[in-house]
Simulated assay, not measured.
Amino acid sequence: MKDVHLSRSAHEQQHIKLWSDRLSQMAEEGKLEPIKGSQAYRGEQAAAISDEDLLAVFQGRPREDEHQTTKKTWRIRTTQELDDWAAAGAREEHINTSALVRKAVAEYLEHHHRTALSA
């Protein structure tokens, strides 16, 4: 079978970016409601992503076009074992590692530092 290379026009790319940014904004504002009965998949053989996990992927994700004071990129060092564990956990929850880390940090702070200033 011959390889086929598909590319999107600049207009299509811009449309997709605007749509993605709007979804991210809605998720952060708590306004994104999954369509009842709909499902999202990471791949053809993957299990469906839960609505909660799908929202976790978008919620809290910084958007590059907005100059937010809360927009931060964390650079952390970790062991290979913890990296593998986090990657496996992310796959198990059907989210990316960044979403897993945001979720884990929020959960930790909720349980151990409730009096600290929340995000």
Score class of each variant (00 low, 15 high):
69 T>R: 09
50 S>I: 00
12 E>D: 12
20 S>N: 12
99 A>D: 02
109 L>V: 14
87 A>T: 11
70 T>A: 12
103 K>G: 03
91 R>L: 11
73 T>S: 08
13 Q>P: 00
16 I>M: 09
74 W>S: 01
97 T>L: 09
53 D>C: 02
86 A>K: 05
64 E>L: 15
62 P>G: 03
118 S>G: 07
38 S>H: 05
46 A>W: 01
95 I>D: 01
68 Q>M: 11
67 H>E: 14
58 F>I: 09
68 Q>H: 10
15 H>A: 14
23 L>W: 05
58 F>V: 06
107 E>T: 14
108 Y>D: 06
100 L>C: 04
16 I>Y: 06
51 D>C: 05
4 V>K: 07
77 R>Y: 06
81 E>I: 12
82 L>M: 13
97 T>I: 15
6 L>M: 14
10 A>D: 07
93 E>S: 07
12 E>H: 00
61 R>M: 09
16 I>G: 01
81 E>V: 12
23 L>N: 04
39 Q>R: 09
13 Q>F: 03
18 L>N: 14
81 E>P: 02
104 A>S: 15
27 A>K: 01
73 T>I: 11
7 S>P: 01
80 Q>L: 14
23 L>C: 07
105 V>T: 08
65 D>I: 10
28 E>R: 04
49 I>W: 00
63 R>C: 04
52 E>A: 14
99 A>T: 03
109 L>R: 10
26 M>V: 00
93 E>V: 02
89 G>A: 08
116 A>S: 14
68 Q>S: 15
8 R>L: 15
16 I>W: 08
44 E>N: 03
119 A>M: 10
78 T>K: 01
40 A>F: 11
106 A>S: 12
88 A>T: 10
11 H>Y: 08
107 E>R: 13
56 A>C: 08
111 H>G: 08
70 T>Y: 10
63 R>T: 05
14 Q>L: 13
71 K>V: 07
22 R>M: 08
39 Q>H: 06
26 M>T: 00
95 I>L: 05
79 T>G: 11
61 R>K: 11
49 I>H: 01
86 A>C: 15
45 Q>N: 06
81 E>C: 02
17 K>T: 13
111 H>K: 15
64 E>P: 02
23 L>G: 02
54 L>I: 00
42 R>S: 04
70 T>F: 11
94 H>D: 10
30 G>P: 05
101 V>R: 02
82 L>C: 09
22 R>S: 11
